Amino acid sequence: MNQHPSTDQTLLKMPSLRAVKCFVAAARHESFTRAAETLCVTQAAISRQIRELEEHLGTPLFERVGRSVRLTTAGAIFFDAAQLSFINIAQAASRIRKDYGNNARRSLTVCCSPAFSALWMAHRLPSFFSAHPDIDLDLVTSQNFLSLEPGIHPDIFITKMSRLRDGYVSMPLFHDRIYPVCTPGYLQAHPEIQTLEGLRHGVLLNLSPYGRSQVAEHVDWSVWLAIYRLDLDDRQKNGAHFFNANDYNLLIQMVLNGQGVALGFNQLVSHLVEQNLLVRPVPEELVLEESRHYLAYREDKASDSALSRFKSWFFAQCGLPGAA
């Protein structure tokens, strides 16, 4: 590995990591005593390390407030940077222990939407763990795939974006199939929803677009009914409720509780339909032929065995050809 003089100078200018560790502990607990208990050292040792750090930086980092301490403006700036650095170091160390240490277990970080994790992943993951007991999964959920928290570098994304970011290879999955769903009991109590006109005037549970700008195209009741030349604005003014939420898990739970009809995205609700927990009151559906979901994986881990095994399992679960 080539050495760069600028890097050497940076290391020489760095404060003691032991001192920074003591500082972070004291800042988190707002107490030198609690910091000492956390790090299993004496309070005097904490005070000495922080004093040396303040001398190195040339400014106080704490001010006394009764029996506790509070960060100064300079201390708050340093704490933000130091805490993030320690988080990154700890995550890297944890990953190395898992992947390269003695008796290493493989680990993968998978990122998908909250709805996909709850309605697609949750009931399928036991089969993955049974088939691959040596692989641990870290599941991260987000609606904003382009701006994750610092330190989060997923190995795999499940997303509706064909090109997510540099360094990832995208593999096409399925199209969205979208159709109304409700419980058998709700359908029996409201037979009028077996027509599109009846649906329009029924209790509709709607997925709002708020906070979903990074999820690609948005399909709600207004869009779905418009495909069949029905205007949602023509609903009876004093008729059934129209409920909006940007939490798809909530909407499906409300449907399961018999509170109305929602649009079901096939990949998320098909298992509930197969179990007869949900039914389709009308046969009509919308298929988004121009878009797909994608599995995007890190290009630099293309030959990683754990990642390859996850891809093969995932594609099999989707009923698609292998991921070789």
Rank of each mutant, 00 (worst) to 15 (best):
I156G: 08
I156P: 05
Q194C: 13
L39A: 03
I252S: 00
A302R: 14
F116G: 06
L199C: 01
M14Y: 02
R70D: 11
V279S: 03
N102K: 14
Q194A: 15
P5Y: 02
S270T: 10
Q194S: 15
D136K: 04
I50T: 07
G202R: 01
A316Q: 12
L57K: 06
A74D: 10
Y100N: 10
P5D: 07
I252Q: 00
K301C: 10
H201S: 04
G322R: 13
G198Y: 05
T109H: 06
I50K: 03
E37R: 12
E299D: 09
D155E: 08
R280E: 12
R177C: 07
H4S: 13
A216I: 03
A82D: 08
A36F: 00
I96M: 08
D136R: 05
L139Y: 05
R18D: 15
A104L: 04
F129L: 06
Q83R: 07
G264R: 03
I77D: 15
L230W: 01
I152R: 09
T195H: 01
F86I: 09
H56L: 02
C112K: 14
S170I: 07
L268I: 01
L84M: 14
V273S: 04
D176A: 08
E54G: 02
L225S: 03
T141F: 03
V110W: 07
L288I: 15
L250H: 04
I96H: 11
T10E: 15
E274Q: 14
D300G: 05
P150A: 12
F242M: 12
K21Y: 03
V282Q: 07
L173S: 05
A76M: 14
F242C: 08
G264L: 02
T72S: 10
A82V: 06
K13A: 15
K160W: 01
V279E: 05
H241N: 13
A296V: 02
E192G: 06
A90W: 08
D80K: 11
T109R: 14
F242S: 08
P15Q: 02
E52A: 13
L39V: 03
P281M: 06
G239N: 09
L39N: 04
I96Q: 11
E52D: 14
N266R: 11
A82W: 03
Q259I: 00
R212I: 01
R124W: 00
N88K: 14
F242W: 09
E63T: 09
V110L: 15
A35N: 04
Y297M: 10
E274Y: 01
T109E: 11
D220P: 12
